[in-house]
Design a protein around this nucleic acid. Structure first.
Length: 317
DNA sequence: AACGTTCGCAACCGCGCACAA
DNA sequence: GTTGTGCGCGGTTGCGAACGT
């Protein structure tokens, strides 16, 4: 919580060329929300609906920036927001999804009813990461922490997606200390997991008959996703969530049978191309391609997620 | 009781994408 | 193709409570 009087580090001496944060506007309040503000915001949104956050504070009569209002609503005031103790099954689900998705908190939150990305992020940073470390597991990779020194010391570079997949020896390194986590070589294969545990490269499912949307022209130079397999991916994730290891493997087997290309095109195109593990802001799909996890067919992700990750809004249907 | 340290979490920041003009 | 606006994400900050000495 920031005290209203405290200035942010960036606002004390903002770069001249960059705009100052919206909250630094003179007269706008910052810091903890009061009960009165909560009531004003809640009443207004219940009456007028969400959206148009930039102008909402003025319309609602709040001395807050739009971002602050949105955050307060999303993380605190919104109906059905579950707060407080995270149940063991929720914790297990977070672990599973994090292993699969990485720090994609909004996606993880989308699979856990009533939990916000912020809450899950906080819970991860304050509880789960420490818990994994205490168990000898690297919270970033979900692999055993290796204490022996190597020729290349740990660095941020190792966090970046690598083209050298370690899928083949992943299980040799990972005894899967958490028996609740479904970990299969097939999963690694399908998801093309890198040696840092992050999925990378291009997982390209060539879908010829499932979604019926693979007719777009494809650019050879782009990292493309050949249609989607929403049904498979969704049920696969649900299988993981439901601790149905056999079913998950079965789903993966079905998915892998439809893999057309897991290709060097990813490397050729440069950079991480896997929307699962890339920063959402740093990857781009080629026209006519999309990631099945991000597609609307995969329920649990909200429309904005889908909007953000898909190229063609028409596909959201 | 007083002080110092650690921890949890609400809130903020910077960035990048989508979209419209 | 460019610019501006709106939005949402992940990462980070720092207050205040809890805990330890």
């Amino acid at each position: 919580m920031r005290h209203p009087s405290q200035a942010s580090t960036s606002s004390t001496s903002p770069p001249i060329s960059k705009p100052t944060p919206c909250c630094t506007k003179v007269g706008l309040k910052r810091g903890p929300w009061t009960a009165e503000e909560d009531e004003v915001l809640g009443n207004y949104i219940r009456k007028e609906g969400e959206g148009r956050w930039r102008t909402l504070p003025k319309r609602a009569g709040l001395l807050r920036c739009g971002k602050s209002c949105r955050l307060r609503w999303m993380n605190y005031l919104r109906p059905n927001v579950k707060r407080g103790h995270i149940a063991p099954d929720e914790e297990d689900l977070i672990l599973r999804l994090h292993r699969l998705l990485g720090n994609r908190w909004s996606l993880i939150a989308g699979r856990i009813p009533g939990r916000t990305d912020n809450e899950i992020k906080n819970y991860w940073n304050t509880h789960l990461s420490k818990k994994l470390i205490s168990q000898g597991i690297d919270p970033r990779t979900h692999k055993p922490l290796i204490t022996t020194t190597t020729s290349s010391p740990p660095s941020s570079d190792q966090d970046k997606p690598s083209s050298s997949s370690k899928a083949t020896n992943y299980h040799a390194l990972n005894p899967n200390p958490n028996p609740n986590l479904v970990t299969t070589a097939l999963e690694d294969q399908v998801l093309n997991k890198g040696n840092n545990g992050y999925y990378h490269g291009s997982v390209i499912l060539q879908n010829s008959d499932v979604s019926g949307i693979g007719n777009e022209e494809q650019d050879d130079d782009e990292i493309n996703y050949c249609g989607t397999d929403d049904v498979f991916m969704s049920s696969f994730l649900n299988s993981l969530i439901n601790e149905d290891g056999f079913n998950a493997q079965h789903q993966l087997h079905q998915m892998s049978s439809s893999i057309g290309i897991i290709t060097a095109a990813a490397a050729a195109a440069g950079g991480s191309s896997d929307p699962l593990m890339s920063h959402p802001s740093t990857f781009a799909f080629g026209a006519g391609w999309e990631n099945p996890i991000m597609s609307s067919g995969y329920n649990g992700f909200n429309q904005n997620e889908t909007k953000k990750f898909t190229h063609d809004p028409a596909r959201l249907e």
